[in-house]
Design a binder for these strands. Structure first.
Length: 432
DNA sequence: TCTGGGGTCCTAGGACCC
DNA sequence: TCTGGGGTCCTAGGACCC
């Protein structure tokens, strides 16, 4: 008998099923087998669906107004997004996974790649079931696990695990038979990294299934499209080439934007909204211990409808890196003055911070307008104090240009938000 | 009436320098 | 009046992801 094959490196992709909906159901056992949907920030579209909701034919991303009838008819329970809850549950899931595997790459709020070295297929499958059971028992969130030698194959295996109940949520393509099977069974659109555009091109080139694409000439594809497609083909063939340098602590931009509840026309209202986004974005910047050097704002009308359309953005390069909200509020005014046009119904605005540095790296410069060290240190102290006071309720202390009501009540009001079960004492579930 | 929000990576092309 | 090549840096835009 042959010795079982030992693989140098194996990825286990652990992915939470219907994550946002699963989080909501955790605290609402009465909804266990009921159709549930979670809506986007503005209650605009469906972003997460339970199995029951999927079965009813409600598609992902559908505008809520288009499915009002179904919501009533089938008693679909809808929730506005409750991100602080999801992030909290996500952290618990990731911490638990990490206790079983030190080499963990959190890829998104609901999935992580775990990698193991020198392991057989049987051992990998055992680990997968152990992880799945641990997350179910300790946290109550169902997960699926895809096992492969590359991330792209692990993603595909994960789909396969979920689609077919007989797999019990775990599928390995470490063996050649299973690898061939998922390649043959999946159209190219199912492959991680192949979007709608690339699908169109590749179909024209005659590649319909993952199997056909896996046989393509990577040199030709790289020349015609990009290195991304070539890498994907390699990954389908067990060649590991997507490295894991991504780290959420290392993000290189912060974007904060919202769609307004009602259209906004005046400069003052736009400015007020932007100031609020600015304050939130700067708080996040400080929480990452970063300073930014570039700052962009954008405003736009709706893409839809027959009203006049306008979109514009403006960017400023700061004289010195900053995380001081006041600096950005001042810049916001200047930038908005440069792009604001009267007579348009604005539906969205946002701010973007990027070009980060880790420290302010104070450097005396005779010619630039860099403030002296003391001014900068005071800025840091003031912002820390602001963040400390605002830790519980984000709007306890705010700067003059912000309007306390703006964020939720005036511009953006989610209607079906679940309580903050895990982060607010007032919202703890009651036990009778 | 109501059409998400927040990210990353890659590439082409312009500006500028020698 | 004609007309470089090579290198770097930056930016805008495209494509993709959850």
């Amino acid at each position: 008998m042959n010795e079982p094959k030992v693989f140098d490196k194996v990825y286990l992709l652990c992915d939470c099923n219907n994550f946002f909906v699963s989080c909501e159901k955790l605290f609402r056992p009465d909804l266990a087998n009921r159709p549930v949907a979670v809506l986007s920030n503005n209650d605009g579209v469906v972003v997460s669906r339970s199995y029951e909701t999927k079965k009813l034919g409600i598609p992902m991303g559908v505008p809520v107004f288009k499915i009002q009838k179904e919501i009533k008819k089938y008693h679909i329970t809808t929730f506005s997004s409750n991100f602080s809850l999801y992030i909290d549950i996500s952290t618990r899931v990731m911490t638990t996974l990490e206790s079983y595997c030190k080499d963990l790459e959190v890829y998104s709020v609901d999935e992580a790649f775990l990698s193991f070295e020198n392991i057989t297929e049987e051992e990998a499958i055992q680990k997968a079931f152990m992880l799945k059971n641990a997350i179910a028992r300790k946290i109550g969130i169902p997960i699926g696990v895809g096992i492969a030698r590359t991330k792209t194959l692990a993603k595909l295996a994960n789909h396969y695990a979920k689609q077919r109940p007989q797999n019990k949520g775990v599928f390995s393509v470490l063996n050649e038979g299973n690898r061939q099977r998922i390649l043959i069974d999946n159209p190219i659109a199912e492959i991680w990294g192949i979007g709608a555009r690339m699908e169109e091109h590749l179909l024209e080139d005659g590649y319909a299934t993952a199997y056909e694409l896996s046989k393509a000439d990577t040199g030709v594809l790289q020349k015609k499209y990009s290195i991304v497609v070539a890498r994907t083909v390699n990954e389908l063939n067990n060649i590991d080439c997507i490295d894991s340098s991504t780290n959420p602590q290392n993000q290189d931009q912060i974007m904060w934007s919202r769609t307004f509840k009602d259209r906004v026309t005046s400069f003052d209202d736009l400015y007020e909204a932007l100031c609020n986004y600015c304050a939130d974005a700067c708080a996040k910047l400080r929480s990452l211990n970063r300073y930014a050097r570039k700052f962009t704002i954008f405003i736009r009308t709706s893409y839809f409808g027959d009203k006049a359309k306008y979109a514009n953005d403006a960017t400023i390069l700061l004289d010195y890196p900053s995380a001081d909200t006041r600096v950005y509020l001042e810049a916001t005014k200047l930038l908005l003055q440069s792009i604001y046009k009267e007579g348009y119904e604005y539906m969205k605005a946002g701010v973007l911070l990027y070009d980060f540095v880790e420290s302010r790296a104070y450097q005396a410069d005779l010619f630039s307008q860099t403030p002296d060290k003391e001014t900068l240190d005071n800025s840091d102290k003031l912002m820390s104090a602001l963040d400390a006071i605002n830790k519980g309720d984000k709007n306890t202390v705010y700067l003059g240009a912000q309007n306390k009501l703006t964020k939720e009540e005036k511009f953006n009001a989610p209607k079906h938000k679940s309580p903050l079960y895990t982060s607010s004492f007032d919202d703890l579930p009651e036990i009778f």
